[in-house]
Amino acid sequence: MFGLEIRNVSKAYGPLLAVDDVSLSIPQGQFVCFLGPSGCGKTTLLRIIAGLEPAGAGAIVLNGKDITTQGANARQFGMVFQSLALFPHLSVCDNVAFSLRLRGVDQKTRRARVDELLSLVRLPGMASRSISQLSGGQRQRVAIARALAQEPPVFLLDEPFSALDAKLREEMQAELRELQKRLKITTILVTHDQREAMSMADDIAVMGEGRIQQYGVPLSLYREPANRFVANFLGLSNLLPVEILCRDRVRLGEAVIAVAPMAEPHARGVATLSIRPEDVLLTLDAPDATSLPGLILAVRDMGSSVEVRLDCHGHQVLCVLQPRDWAGAAAGSTVKVGFPAQQCRVLAA
């Protein structure tokens, strides 16, 4: 197949298993995010793909060819490092042209290609600057241009935007996504920022404890998290301990709650109910059999949304509302809390 395949890759550092039997197929031209908390093995996996770190076990296959034993300098995957790793002793031009120089491209062609790349990342006329004269966002762009200069088969980025302020970060994310779509280059971006992953990726691999916890389209991961880890890491989730009654009913405290019918037959017993804060319904009516009474603990009005923290049968529930849906109850009052069945997911405890 065309694209990148990761087959049963593992990597241990002493007793610590940093990457645990990871398999993944990334079709040519796809934009994939490795999303996970620090220490989940995402950067190690990226470095194994780049060839900077040998895989302990498994194989890396590019367009059907096994490249596991090739070093980074043979694979030549373009990579943007978290530190950017721009060469401080070279100018912008020499940084971008580094890979071209290694290939013996003549100076005139080199210069033309550098100009082309710099205008691609919107830094025209900056070629003769030294790295220390650039701002954070400009350095970012130089690092991207440098990694793309060699026309890499795979483009890797390790938390490239973590040092930028929020506004610039969003601009750069949009620009990178645009650039990737135009160049149709297979791209892997490592991040711990779920907003970044959701807004950029075709597919997200949520990683935890060295394994891929779930792989798929951002929205399906958000709507249908496979386990507690994904539900909690990708956006906020209310995770409530429930008892399974039948295929589409669970008990939370004294209330019986209807849930989306479970796909595989679940054993009776304890499970976790996952519901997104924005899916929780909140009204001032009196609670009935299918809803719960909620005691308002705190209200945070953020202007664009309202966050209400509730206590339902001793469990904390977070509810996020649009301002126009918010009736304006004060902390201490009791409201009716509803969980729409289609938005309720039952996960293993």
Binding site: N73, S83, F98, L156
Partner: peptide, 18 residues
């Protein structure tokens, strides 16, 4: 010396002596 600098050079195709 930043370890990422030689690593970056390697991803661009540079051999260790280079």
């Amino acid at each position: 010396l930043d370890d990422d600098l030689p690593a970056a050079a390697a991803t661009m195709g540079a051999s260790p002596p280079r």
